[in-house]
């Protein structure tokens, strides 16, 4: 059975897929060859010579195999091809394809996959890093309400541009929000759909979206504490490095893919150029607006400090 082909853009890549994805649709048939081709077909039971192997996934340079029980089996090769053998509905197949599977593909292409959402500010991209449940998407939604544009939700791809500057890739214009977080955003469009049938988590399309890459200006790691009040502290280069490694999305895939060195190099360049701050907020109650206020205040002060430090230098803001 043949399926109609969709054409999309995500993380700066042209994607051709027989499965509907929440990526940016291309208005017409693209003039160029796609960068990523997704196909439906039989996925082999195992890789011939895996370097790394768990019960659910195996990897080797250039190939990654993932099995999601009752949903699909996926094979990602050469940062270019994704073969899918569906066992469940397209909606479920798409969830794991846009998450773990696309992360493996980006890693094969040498892109650093950070567990982060990202917004556009005047001075560059600001990343909100943190594990599941730390508030990345809620903070993203709140800053969008305040007029910023989004670059990515959940997984932010970072590369070094030709000048060696860390640059955040533009992912796709959807935020995934739990019902509780959505309740606070009453004005959002009603066109949202559930991420998966049995979950109170929604895909919310975003209009204010930046579609091109942007130099990273700061990374905020979201953590919580059992005290009152919000605390923001700037990491040393050493702790910033550890923090970015810890907040790498699917870090354990990297070893088998032989991408750890590339990853370390990019992260090391990033912590030398970009401030990484740790933002601690009370575990309970989770109040999103005071958190957004504090982060905005911190970034304003940080920018002012940088301007003062660089007074007299004509190179402010220019690329190196």
């Amino acid at each position: 059975m043949s399926r109609a082909l969709h054409h999309y853009t995500a993380y700066g890549l042209r994607v051709q897929s027989p499965i509907a994805l929440p990526f940016v649709p291309s208005p017409s048939a693209p003039a160029h060859e796609p960068d990523v081709v997704i196909r439906v077909g039989a996925v082999p039971a195992a890789l011939p010579t895996p370097v790394d192997k768990t019960r659910l996934w195996e990897s080797t340079p250039g190939a990654f195999l993932l099995n999601v029980d009752g949903v699909a089996r996926y094979l990602v090769t050469e940062g270019r091809n994704i073969l899918v053998e569906p066992r469940g509905g397209d909606q479920d197949v798409s969830v794991f394809l846009t998450g773990s599977v696309f992360a493996a593909l980006l890693q094969q292409r040498g892109v650093v996959t950070l567990h982060a959402s990202a917004i556009e500010t005047r001075a560059g991209a600001v990343l909100f890093l943190g594990p599941s449940g730390s508030g990345k998407s809620s903070l993203l939604a709140t800053t969008l309400q305040r007029g910023h544009a989004m670059l990515a939700d959940d997984v932010t791809g970072v590369v070094l541009d030709p000048g060696g500057r860390p640059t955040a890739l533009s992912a796709f214009p959807t935020v995934r929000l739990w019902a509780d977080a959505l309740d606070e955003l009453v004005w959002w469009p009603r066109t949202r759909g559930k991420v998966r049938e049995n979950m109170e988590k929604y895909l919310v399309p975003v209009e204010r979206f930046r579609a091109t890459p942007l130099a990273v200006r700061a990374a905020c790691a979201l953590t919580s504490h059992n005290r009152s009040g919000i605390e923001i502290e700037t990491c040393t280069i050493h702790t910033a490095f550890k923090c970015l490694l810890k907040n790498t999305y699917r870090k354990r895939y990297l070893h088998g893919l032989d991408q750890r060195q590339v990853h370390f190099r990019t992260v090391a360049a990033m912590v030398r150029q970009v401030p990484v701050v740790r933002v601690k907020r009370p575990t309970y109650p989770f109040q999103i607006n005071p958190l957004a206020d504090e982060i905005e205040r911190f970034l304003r002060e940080h920018d002012r400090g940088e301007c003062e430090a660089e007074t007299g230098s004509p190179a402010v803001g220019a690329s190196g």
């Binding site: 599941s132 449940g133 998966r196």
Partner: peptide
């Protein structure tokens, strides 16, 4: 821990 689950299992527990 969700973070441990996501990294060790390799799948997003939040999905």
């Amino acid at each position: 821990s969700r973070h441990t689950f996501d990294e060790y299992v390799g799948l997003p527990s939040s999905d």
